[in-house]
């Protein structure tokens, strides 16, 4: 019996080639799919041939002007940053309380935090939209921010709770012994230690909020659309916009969100995502 050497484990083995063949097939088709959108966004016209006859960058300037991309991008960033800020402001103290205390009634609180993560956004999005319309909040930026806070806040708490649990309580006790008040313990000891977790949670919320379609779609008005909603509206009403301009916009969206993902991967390692997920399964 040979013990597998770690260095070669990935490329060898009886089924390895089947697996890598499948991966290669998937990636090949995916690359072709992305390429066909990119090619189309640069095409003058493209119909029924292998490649378009002539290329242009006009669709990008077109999309920028016609869709009011400057405004849409501003709204997207403002909404995302506001959601991140509020979720962290409310979520970090809550995560601390959950990490440090075991109290009667903790289970209902955990359930309240898990349900928004587990339920499909449409399920609470539609009643939430009705409520927001009732209070005349829907159709405005504050409505969009409120709706996006619903999945973001539990997400922050669930990511940060195990993170704070790892921090030794002795550190806090020591700080108190040296005469620090609660506020000082929080700002001088805890927050600096939790900063990596806060960054990770914040960036993941940013990525998720930019990608969140359903909730924003249900509560946004013409002036409070985020990029993904504007993109969907353009794609769903065919004939009004040129297909190439829509593709150009889709490329812009993908570039924005992959920039955010690359940023996220610089701070987050996958095990932190699992630490959050671990909380999601009540055994």
């Amino acid at each position: 019996m040979t013990v597998p050497t770690p260095r070669r484990a990935g490329w060898r083995g009886p089924y390895a080639w089947i697996v890598w063949g499948g991966v290669a097939f998937f990636l090949l088709n995916l690359a072709a799919l992305i390429l066909s959108v990119v090619v189309n966004s640069f095409a003058v016209t493209w119909f029924g041939s292998w490649l378009p006859s002539a290329f242009t960058t006009a669709w990008y300037t077109d999309a920028w002007r016609e869709f009011g991309l400057a405004q849409v991008l501003t709204v997207t960033l403002l909404v995302a940053l506001a959601v991140v800020g509020l979720a962290l402001l409310l979520g970090v103290p809550a995560a601390y309380a959950l990490a440090r205390r075991d109290f009667a009634g903790k289970r209902p609180v955990m359930l309240l935090l898990l349900l928004p993560v587990l339920l499909p956004p449409i399920t609470y999005g539609i009643p939430l939209a009705t409520v927001l319309y009732k209070f005349h909040l829907a159709g405005s930026m504050s409505g969009v921010i409120a709706a996006n806070l619903v999945p973001a806040l539990p997400f922050v708490v669930l990511v940060l709770t195990p993170f704070i649990e790892q921090i030794d309580t002795n550190l806090e006790s020591a700080a108190r012994m040296c005469g620090a008040g609660t506020r000082q313990v929080f700002t001088r000891v805890l927050v600096p230690l939790v900063v990596p977790g806060i960054l990770a949670a914040g960036i993941l919320v940013l990525v998720r909020t930019v990608a969140m379609f359903e909730l924003t779609f249900l509560v946004s008005g013409p002036d409070s659309q985020t990029l993904i909603v504007a993109l969907y509206s353009a794609a769903f009403t065919p004939g009004i916009r040129a297909a190439q301009a829509i593709d150009a916009m889709a490329v812009v969206y993908t570039l924005l969100s992959s920039a955010l993902l690359v940023l996220a991967l610089m701070f987050v390692n996958p095990t932190q995502i699992v630490a959050q997920v671990k909380e999601v399964t009540p055994e």
């Binding site: 609180v109 309240l112 928004p116 539609i126 806040l153």
Partner: peptide, 28 residues
């Protein structure tokens, strides 16, 4: 029983979720 002033930190988050999630759900 684990109930002290630290739990006050939990209140704002729970309040927001009750207002924006639980209330709309029950309303629905």
């Amino acid at each position: 029983r684990g109930i002290d002033r630290v739990l006050l930190l939990l209140v704002p988050a729970v309040l927001v979720l009750v207002l924006l999630f639980l209330y709309p759900m029950l309303y629905g």
